Every structure is written in structure tokens, then in C-alpha cells.
Simulated scan of single mutants.
Amino acid sequence: MSEENCSHDCSSCGVECGSRTSPQSLLVKPNELSKVKHVVAVMSGKGGVGKSSVTSLAACLMSRAGYHVGILDADVTGPSIPKMFGVKGELRGTESGAYPLPSDGGIDLVSINLMLPNEDDPVVWRGPVISGVIKQFWSEIIWQDIDYLFVDMPPGTGDVPLTVFQSLPVDGILVVTSPQDLVSMIVKKAVNMAAMMNVPILGLIENMSFFRCPDCGKEHHLFGESHLPSIAAQYDLPVIGHVPLDPVLADACDHGKIETYDAHYLDSLQEILEKLPEK
């Protein structure tokens, strides 16, 4: 490994760069029966911005476009993906690996909630154990002919995001934000981590952007005016879309019917994902 690509301070570590393992070697091999064309991570710099619902909307968008889509729920301590799709049951294992559970619309799902006796059982595990589970979701799950695998990340830049970026062949990142002043800090954290991991950010998505009055149709910005366009321009990133506070969407998520939610807030994402280079 050349010094210019080294990720540590060579002058003080006492280790020759050539004797260190390349970051590329940290990639975990997928199940031998898996075939995944693209891996897209969905992350946020903080919790509570609706990252899982945005992940689900993105997956539904690509599924309706005719692609075979999967979701790897990497938010192990706060899994919500199966509930949004109304999927219950346990993953079916074989000697070769385990299979995801499909939604009504054919989206393949893997989540810790599909491995627990009860979906409301808490997952009280330390970081290394959770990271190990994420690797197993990639290496022991048979992802069959997946065009786009979305990884729903936990908030922040801790153990799990680091594990995902080091272990999975992530093609790009979608950053979910909310319309508040701290959005600049959130985006900056994501940009910095993406640069450290050498993974491109595909674009920014603002959730809870506005509320449209059902009576008059006027848009109300309950959390303030959006700062996203200026922030996106600062980092030369595209704004993919603005998702509103919508009681219909919330109800669909609560009742496992997100695939029935018909909206076009993220339509521009399809073109971005279709331009990802083939592996």
C-alpha cells in the first residue's frame, strides 16, 4: 500500500505501509449464491429525520420501475423496515444460507426483527456484536438477482456505518436531512465520512419538508424554511427531493402499507441510480 493512500500517520506509527492490510481487503464476501448489482446506503447525521421511511420510499420507487430491490435493515437496535412493509415471520435458512422475506410487492427484506421471537423484543447488544450481525446479513443471506440493495443505516457515524462502508461494496450514499438550521452540520458529517470511506454521496433528501393543508392546499413549513439548496450548492451535491409531513404516509407506514403510497417526491432518484456503473 503506497504512503499516499495510507489512512494513518506513517511518521509516528512505526509500521511500514507495505506490511499493512489494504482497506479493500476488509470487504466481506457475499454469499456464493448472491448476486447484487448495486448497494446504496441511506444515512443521516442524527436520529429522528425519517431515514427508514425515505429508504422504503426509495425502494418502492425502484421496484415500481421494474427493478428487483432489497432492503438490508442495518438499524439493528431500532429496526422498523418489516413493519412498514407489513412483513412478519422468520427468515428461512438452508445449508447454503438464509433467504430474505419478500414484501407484497416483491421487495426482499432482511432485518433483525425477522429473527426475534417477538418483534418488540429489545436488542441489547454491544457494537462489535451488532457489526458482526451486519456482516452476516451480507455474507449469509442469499440475495438473489438484486438490482438495488438499499441499506437502512442507524443514525450517526459510529460502528455500524463504519462496518457497512468497510465490509459492503457500497456504490453511493443518500443523505436524509430535515429543514432545520443544524442541517449544515448533519450534511458536513456525512460528507466527511463519505470522503474518509471513499464512497460518493449521490444526493440529499429532505424529509418533513412541509405540510400541505388538506383544505386549502397551502404549504406550511413547520420546521422553518429549507436550507438544503444552499447547503447542497456548498458541497456541489444534488437535491433529490423534498418529502412532506403527510398523514397518509404516516398511516401507510404504521399499517404496513407503504407500497401502496403513491407519491412522486423522489422521482429524480431513479435516473441517478440508473447511472451507477455496472460492477
Rank of each mutant, 00 (worst) to 15 (best):
T177I: 11
G217A: 13
G224K: 09
P244A: 06
V183T: 15
G158M: 09
L245E: 09
N207V: 09
I205G: 00
E219Q: 13
S167D: 06
L168P: 06
P161A: 05
L237W: 07
K218W: 07
C216W: 12
S184N: 12
K188A: 11
V160K: 02
H242W: 08
P169F: 03
S230E: 14
F223R: 09
L222D: 12
Q234K: 15
A232T: 04
D246K: 10
Q234P: 01
L182Q: 12
H242D: 07
Y235M: 04
M208F: 11
M197P: 01
V191F: 08
L237D: 07
V243T: 08
N207S: 10
P214L: 10
D181H: 11
H220W: 10
Q166K: 00
E225C: 04
G241R: 04
D215M: 14
V170A: 00
A232Y: 02
E206L: 01
M196C: 03
H220S: 14
A232R: 00
I240K: 12
H220D: 12
F223C: 11
P214E: 13
G203C: 06
K188R: 14
P247G: 11
P238D: 04
F223K: 10
G203Q: 09
D215N: 15
N192I: 13
P169W: 02
L202N: 02
G172S: 08
R212G: 05
G224W: 04
K218G: 12
V199W: 06
P238F: 05
V176F: 04
H221P: 02
P200F: 07
T177Q: 04
L162T: 08
L228F: 07
C216Q: 13
D171P: 02
V164G: 07
F211A: 03
L168N: 00
P238E: 10
N198Q: 15
K218T: 14
D215S: 14
L228R: 01
E206S: 04
I231D: 00
D246N: 13
P214S: 15
D159R: 11
Q234L: 08
A190V: 06
V164P: 00
C213D: 14
H220N: 15
S209V: 05
L237Y: 05
A233F: 02
F165S: 13
E206R: 05
V243K: 00
L222M: 14
V187C: 02
L228G: 07
P229F: 03
P244G: 05
Q180S: 13
V239G: 04
I240V: 15
A195H: 12
M208R: 03
N198R: 15
G203W: 08
D236W: 10
A194K: 05
A190W: 02
P179E: 06
V239S: 02
T163Y: 03
C213S: 12
T163P: 08
Q180P: 07
P214Q: 12
H242N: 11
M197K: 06
V187Q: 02
M197S: 08
L168I: 09
P247F: 06
P244M: 08
I240F: 01
I231F: 07
N207Q: 11
H242E: 15
C213H: 10
